[in-house]
């Protein structure tokens, strides 16, 4: 467990008087792709927002790279290598694709490295390169998801968190986004993936957690979870 990049223990989050997260334990090792699945309202998004610093825990511990994140403000976590692709993508609609990507590199200062990474993103998502001067708000949902992912990668994160990347996308686009997630994971980045589409998530992940009503109900290797009766019944419609 010493090589865990992210280590959460007993995390509690209260949200407008409701205990949305009731003490969860979770860890992500370096280079690991971990899926967090569960139904609507289980607390998955709340977990990610808390890790990104947008929400404050009511109890428990978050350790990242061996350090406590308790007193680290959201904007400092980006510089530490924590990136969140938020639910609904959160692209800057009135800014161009390129400006969106440059915002992703906001915490970095080496301009020539940033320029190199921009080209890498356009290589990874050619469609974004063709339209780099177009306003992000004019793109399709799938293209906006690409912008959000490329923008997060521009910070050169060590921990990439994705919140429902497949939401609202056409099947072909979902396939494309998940291929990209697989490619990024192959580069050795640690990924925490939140998905309602449990099958898709468990197929790309190494390990998974199943969340229900603010608590972790099950956890284990992704293959085992895919085969487990409980998961089959509840999330895979089997």
């Amino acid at each position: 467990m010493t090589d865990s990049l992210l280590e959460i223990s007993g995390l509690k989050v209260a949200y407008g008087g409701i205990h949305a997260i009731k003490g969860i334990d979770l860890h992500v090792a370096s280079g690991e792709l971990v899926a967090l699945i569960g139904s609507n309202g289980a607390g998955k998004t709340t977990t990610l927002k808390t890790l990104a610093g947008l929400l404050h825990p009511a109890g428990g511990q978050i350790r990242y790279d061996g350090k406590s994140l308790d007193s680290v403000a959201a904007h400092r976590r980006a510089a530490m290598g924590i990136a969140l692709v938020p639910e609904g993508r959160g692209v800057f609609a009135r800014m161009t694709i390129e400006e969106n990507l440059l915002m992703g590199a906001y915490s970095r200062s080496n301009n020539s490295e940033i320029a190199t990474d921009l080209e890498r993103m356009y290589g990874l998502f050619p469609r974004l390169g063709e339209r780099k001067d177009q306003l992000a708000g004019t793109l399709s949902g799938g293209e906006q998801q690409m912008v959000a992912m490329a923008r997060a990668l521009m910070s050169r994160p060590r921990l990439l968190m994705l919140d429902e990347p497949s939401m609202g996308l056409a099947p072909l686009m979902v396939q494309k986004i998940f291929d990209t997630i697989r490619d990024i994971a192959a580069l050795g980045m640690s990924i925490l993936l939140v998905e309602q589409n449990a099958r898709l998530a468990l197929e790309v992940a190494q390990r998974g957690y199943v969340m229900e009503s603010g608590a972790i109900m099950l956890s284990g290797a992704a293959g085992e979870l895919l085969g487990s009766d409980a998961v089959q019944r509840a999330y895979l419609g089997g």
């Binding site: 610093g53 959201a74 915002m103």
Partner: peptide, 8 residues
């Protein structure tokens, strides 16, 4: 929120 996530 998104701006904060970028490190702003």
């Amino acid at each position: 929120h998104a701006a904060q996530l970028m490190g702003v």
